[in-house]
Write a protein that binds this DNA or RNA. Sequence first.
RNA 1: GCGGACGUGGUGGAAUUGGUAGACACACAGGACUUAAAAUCCUGAGACGGCAACGUCGUGUGGGUUCGAGUCCCACCGUCCGCACCA
Length: 873
Amino acid sequence: MSSERYNAPARERHWQEAWTTAGIDKAGTDTSKPKCYVLEMFPYPSGRIHMGHVRNYTMGDVFARYKRARGFNVLHPMGWDAFGMPAENAALERKTHPAKWTYANIDAMRAQLKSMGLAIDWSREIATCHVDYYRHQQEIFLDLLAKGLAYRGPGKVNWDPVDQTVLANEQVIDGRGWRSGALVETREMQVWYFRITAFADDLLKSLETLDKWPEKVRLMQANWIGRSEGMSVRWALDPENAPEGETEIEVFTTRPDTLFGASFVAIAADHPLAKKLAETNADLKEFADECRRRGTSIIEIEKGEKLGFDTGLFVRHPLDPEWKVPVWVANFVLMDYGTGAIFACPSGDQRDLDFARKYGLPVVPVVLPPGADAATFEIGGDAIESDGTMINSRFLDGLSTKGAFEEVAKHLEAATLGNRPVGVRQVKYRLKDWGISRQRYWGCPIPVIHCETCGAVPVPKKDLPVELPEDATFDKPGNPLERHPTWKSVTCPKCKKPARRETDTMDTFVDSSWYYGRFTDPASKKKPIDAKAADYWLPVDQYIGGIEHAILHLLYSRFFWRAMGAAGAAPAKVSEPFAALFTQGMVTHETYKSDDGRWLLPTEVAFEGDGDTRRATEVATGKPCAIGSIEKMSKSKKNLVDPDDIIAHWGADCARWFMLSDSPPERDVIWTEAGVQGAGRFIQRVWRLVNEIADRAPNSLAISPSGLGDAAMELRRATHKSIDAVGRNIESLRFNVAVAQMYEYSNAISAALPKSGEDIDFALREAGEMLTRSLAPMMPHLAEECWARLGYNTLVAIEPWPEADPALLVDDRVTLAVQVNGKRRGELTVARSATSSEVEAAALALDPVLRALEGRPAKKVIVVPQRIVNIVA
RNA sequence: GCGGACGUGGUGGAAUUGGUAGACACACAGGACUUAAAAUCCUGAGACGGCAACGUCGUGUGGGUUCGAGUCCCACCGUCCGCACCA
């Protein structure tokens, strides 16, 4: 009986309904079973899903379905990272409301995701813009505030003049706003912070425990946190010309060992002392302004030009009061790192050396590199930043740099200046507190009331939520909450006098810092996170998302979960929310440009020829167009493929299969029409194979597997090896290898089909069922169709993963390569149980081996059982 | 500048972690079926030499360790990513 082609688009909806009706995607409630929490980074509801989503959610879905088949209670939820500026921009442009726009987008994207056939527990869906979500976030904020983990303070903030908002440091890329691309300005204002620096050390140390995270991400986070060990050293100002009230300069250094190479002390242009001096020194003021102007420019930083201004002040060396050291203002000293002041040892630091050479300041070598001659050694254009032996350093001479560090530290700790030690050991971090204030409407309101008498007063928990007013206006830039006529007018919770509501909302990264916890019990009314549910489900067992979140979202989440634990807002059983992380690559595509330089969609282009003769023409004009480089799919370059089109034409399984097949999941994948066709061909091929098998062996055959012939045994071995390999590859997220294994296996089934015999039918029947079951996580709809065709009226989606028979994973005969002097000369097939001496004898008797030996005796024979024989002649 | 990753046929990539390099797929070529096309099936293919058996070379380049190296070590070249005047 010949079969119809499998009509994927028509059948997929059927099976999706069947899964929903059976409720199989709901997370299990039996907490005695082992759990597996699979999560993909939730999407921003931009309006439509893109191929990046398809790739991300397919990977998570395969893993979730596989784990379910393995007997785990699987939690695989989905939600919406729904606050953010695009909604407000849309409101401004399209005269709609951010909420309306957002919820419409969510509805559209939910339908798209459902058409992918994802095994998601939709009963747990959350949207961060919903008051049921953000009311809890306000509660968490209040808990953090009470613990001092949230605070309001002055900030030099990054102000984005286009989006009219403050940006976090992480959102400033090369001096520009991450979203608007506008040059960021610096402004002083009162803003809200989360005290992420309180956890700097733990966040760094605990990276070591994240052994299922990519090394790359851990390194990026470690660099971002940027721990350095050093000393804070105070230098007494020479009172002769020091300004009123200024007595010392505190510097931070990681190299106190080079203290005797000190040439000058440099302070930042924004250092309080520099500011004070600038009040009476117009030249210095102008210099400082110049530094500020240049400071933000990347070009200036790349040029690295060192600029300085001699203040005329002096400080006394901390270990020699007789030693006067000049104080400079320098553009390369940053106010927001350390103390905003350094001591410079030009022989040991390249920047200091450049500066010293430019302004004619002393350069005293203090570290002799290994192998250098002390008598002739001098500093040329390069500073000695490596370790060595101390010279010209008084009591440190002869010590190693490390030894000198310890020795000088003791002296600095013992010496005093104004009753306190001159130097103390200190650890500094590059990481800064997280500024969360955003002057926008579409975000979670910060639950605080400003009162003239009481100051910033937290909104009492009983008054939560602080809801966004629906009747805000979006017709001009700036903060709609700020200009709302009534919303901010409230009474002070403490003194009941008229007060002003905080109009800042929270950075949307706050929303995504705890959503994984909310999923464990999204309906919980009392607490943001239900302790019992969280204890069972967390941590996330497999988190999947883009590398672009390596620092921002992933570091914030790690911090936030700790902060919540410390503030009692979340159960503190696990400190790391994501036990395993996988960062998937991007989806890329060729780009096309018309002859007059417009970008063209792939659907606007027709092709002819192939290889070097491949030509593209623009369909609308018939003119030739240029085939450009392969780049990440983006609206700007129009190299987009719409998932809807693919699913409607080829089916979800086809899109899923192609996404899994072509590239290792952590690398970029190139979307090609040919690749999709290949995936579509494979779907039809599986369908034909299963049909043929179902016709030949309509039921499981009750014959004994013991009496099978060679061909049947061969197929059975292929079956069980495939089950084993596919399972292991899915487990380790090596989907492309799992796919290749399935191709290889279906080739093996095809090869067995022409053979006949009851034992072949038996092996084929088994093959058909196993093929279907091991395909189910990857192409779930096709698998259901095949399962039904094989005569079952159950859902294959809830069938357990098949167990491979260990006895069938090994062959009784093995083929091993035979080498002479490391060169392959032949191969040998022997019984698996053959002894080394038997193998050696057989290898030495091989014709090609005899030829290669040319009569020479074998000096040595190495036999690696079941692998290889190497004969050394 | 600092830190990291990667480099395998025409293409995407595999290689049991030191043991037959190029699985599997895409593209290609030839053939079968067909009035024809589509679909499907079969065959071929790393490069060079040879009718062939076969031989030589071959995982960015150059060295090294080893019976044996795509895999380990050293140096270099190239590509990509992150951070960037961090004291």
